[in-house]
Design a protein around this nucleic acid. Sequence first.
DNA 1: GCGCTTAGTTGAACGTGTTCAAATTCAGCT
DNA 2: AGCTGAATTTGAACACGTTCAACTAAGCGC
Lengths: 240, 240
Amino acid sequence: MAGMRKKKAVKTHKGDQTKALILETALDIFRERGYEETTMRAIAEKAGVSLGNAYYYFRSKEYLIQAFYQRLHDEHLAASLPALENKDNLKARLLTVMRLRIDIMKPYHHFAGVLFKTAAHPESPLNPFSDESDPVREASIQLFARVVEGTTARIPKDLKGELPYLLWVYQMGIVLFWIHDPSRGHRRTYRLVDHTVDLLDKLIHLASNPFMRPLRKQALRLVEEIREALPDDDDEKEER
Amino acid sequence: MAGMRKKKAVKTHKGDQTKALILETALDIFRERGYEETTMRAIAEKAGVSLGNAYYYFRSKEYLIQAFYQRLHDEHLAASLPALENKDNLKARLLTVMRLRIDIMKPYHHFAGVLFKTAAHPESPLNPFSDESDPVREASIQLFARVVEGTTARIPKDLKGELPYLLWVYQMGIVLFWIHDPSRGHRRTYRLVDHTVDLLDKLIHLASNPFMRPLRKQALRLVEEIREALPDDDDEKEER
DNA sequence: GCGCTTAGTTGAACGTGTTCAAATTCAGCT
DNA sequence: AGCTGAATTTGAACACGTTCAACTAAGCGC
């Protein structure tokens, strides 16, 4: 154990360091060996803590991924902000952000399966609609809000409001594809991003046409309906 | 054990019966207690076979769900065919099939989470793009092909060709929503189906407009690209 | 009937995620 | 320094999915 500072240096509750240590160790092994192949015992051992201790900080193995999610987003954001500065058209901005997403995730490809495994499970902390992933989700959507805001395109207000969310969903789709993409360097995913961004750009402009107003309204009403139904479990009566 | 036929009645390799018995038992308990809460030991015990024997017929617990998938489809098909007979417009046909899907799945709602859990995991047999679920997937798409075929609407050939697949994907989206839908009687899902079918119908007609040809072509090229990239793992070199 | 091969079946054992009561360390207080 | 409650840490124990070497039963050629 290096670094034995005394004094009042224990401002950062000791636990925080341990928690960070465990997470780092876990991600290391995940990256090397994949998720399923990594045991909690291995993580604890390599981190130099007991098995139970790992569970003190992470309620389950899945919660380690939740933390990984958070980190992915942080890196993505950090890479995106500067890259967006000198671009003002929607297509270029979206393309930039999407490509960066793949770049960031690359090192984790062969363990990324678990991101979506369980991701759709209602009770899982990984479920992107669950309360537990609320902060990450919100932050992710926020990034797309920036993409849209900094654009010069004329987009009707109603669409502009929902667009960040829609783009976030789009991103999840791309990630899903990426997970299944075995092509070298994930070139297929990059190509798909290129093409879909191009198409999306066109669709957005089409949808912005006054002529399309009624259909657009209808579609947006639908999106809203889905959004408000999914996240909050107000009817959660447990029909046992 | 009732029914002890002798003679040459053993045409149906004994194993088939055992396999069926295990599956039935498993689904029973799944429905009652959910997937995670059902242990392989409980299944084996209730089915009156040994634990190892269950594994002789189902390579893993997940494979039981694969079988369940198959059964879901069979029931869905059986219910859909007669219901489609007297309908010839796309909207009504699609609506019928989609509503029946929810009807069929209803009894399994609180264990259905696992359908999508793992479903996106590349190596899982549940992954709807995997080779293992090939037959079920193909059959499912086939059902939507029937929906489209029996319609009077004028739909361009290129779109008509991809439509069954697109509708199958749409159905997966609805199922995903349904899994998360806690509303009584799943009324929200039914409502969503109503609204999305309405919208889809309009979109299909819009996309069929000659004016839309270029955009449609582009979108369809994209769909093809995705389809051919996903199922076959030709680049599967394992980058270890 | 007899040996042989295949199909079917068994249960003990293993590895892993998770739990928990108990032990230890820490921070603030007197 | 000594005390106290909270935070942290431990490792044994448990339950479950899965594996596997061994056993039994069934069909088949002779």
